[in-house]
Amino acid sequence: MLDDLDRRILRQYQADPEAGTAELAERCGATSATVWRRLERMREGGILKGVEAVIDWQALGYAVEVSLRVTLDKTVARAYDDFLIAARMVPEVLEIQTFLGRVDVRLSVIARDLAHYQVLYRDRILTLPHIADIETLMHIARVKSEEALPL
């Protein structure tokens, strides 16, 4: 379980993942050695899974984001497995989520423009296996996008 110091370290690390151990220690009111040991323990415990680069796909020329709600043909035994394997092969699919309920899978897809999306949809998405129904939701605005946890 995390104690107060662990939470302070995580809050500061979340706010500035490029900060060094000494800087984190100063912000948290602890020694560098203590912060280093705590971070190592959290890495070993699977709490910290790594540091990643966040790339702005819009800055790379992708202007369209679409969510696709997919219902699969559940009469096919391997429908989920086959669909997920094939969907992972589409580079423009950024995220795949599975659900219980009427919608089985949600895909988050990006495209350079609507013409690119139309080709992508027709040639790559609609050819994914075992689709029974698909609903397209065009993103208009991102109102909130928060990666930080409430620690």
Score class of each variant (00 low, 15 high):
L39I: 12
A79Q: 02
D104L: 06
R37N: 12
S67V: 13
V109S: 02
L107C: 05
L48R: 08
T71A: 15
R27A: 15
T98K: 10
W36E: 10
L84D: 08
A115N: 04
I110P: 02
T34A: 13
R69N: 11
T34P: 01
A59I: 03
D104P: 02
T71K: 15
L107R: 00
E95H: 15
S32Q: 13
D81T: 14
I47Y: 11
Q118T: 14
A86P: 00
A79Y: 07
D82T: 07
Q97A: 11
E40T: 12
Y80Q: 12
D113T: 07
V66S: 04
V109A: 04
V103K: 05
T31N: 05
A77P: 01
L24I: 03
A53W: 05
R41N: 12
I55G: 03
Q58A: 13
T98R: 14
R88C: 06
V66C: 07
Q118H: 13
C28A: 14
T75Y: 06
L68W: 04
I85R: 14
K49Y: 06
H116A: 14
D82R: 08
I85P: 00
R106V: 03
A111E: 04
V54W: 05
V51H: 12
V109I: 13
E44G: 04
A30D: 03
I55M: 06
A111R: 06
W36S: 15
T71G: 07
E92M: 04
L39W: 05
I96Q: 04
L48T: 02
Y62N: 10
V119A: 14
T31D: 10
V76A: 06
V64A: 06
Q58I: 11
Y62Q: 07
T75L: 13
E40P: 01
V109F: 03
Y117K: 01
L84V: 09
V51C: 10
E92P: 00
S32A: 15
T75N: 14
D82V: 06
V70W: 01
D56K: 07
D56L: 10
A33H: 09
V76C: 01
F83V: 07
V105F: 02
V109Y: 02
T75R: 15
A63H: 15
L68H: 05
G50F: 04
W36T: 02
D56E: 09
R38Y: 02
A79L: 06
D81Q: 13
A53G: 08
F99Y: 12
M89V: 07
L48W: 03
E40M: 12
L94Q: 13
R37P: 00
D73W: 04
S108L: 15
G29V: 04
L48P: 03
E26H: 07
T75S: 14
L72Y: 01
A115W: 11
L72M: 11
V51L: 13
L60T: 11
I110S: 00
Q118V: 08
I55N: 02
E92C: 00
E65Y: 02
L94N: 11
A79P: 00
R37E: 05
Y80G: 03
E26I: 05
R43D: 09
Q118W: 03
V105K: 00
R38D: 01
L72H: 06
L94D: 09
L94Y: 08
S67T: 05
I96C: 10
M89A: 14
R78Y: 10
R41F: 05
W36Q: 09
T98A: 14
V109G: 00
S108M: 10
Y62S: 09
W36M: 05
V66K: 11
D73C: 09
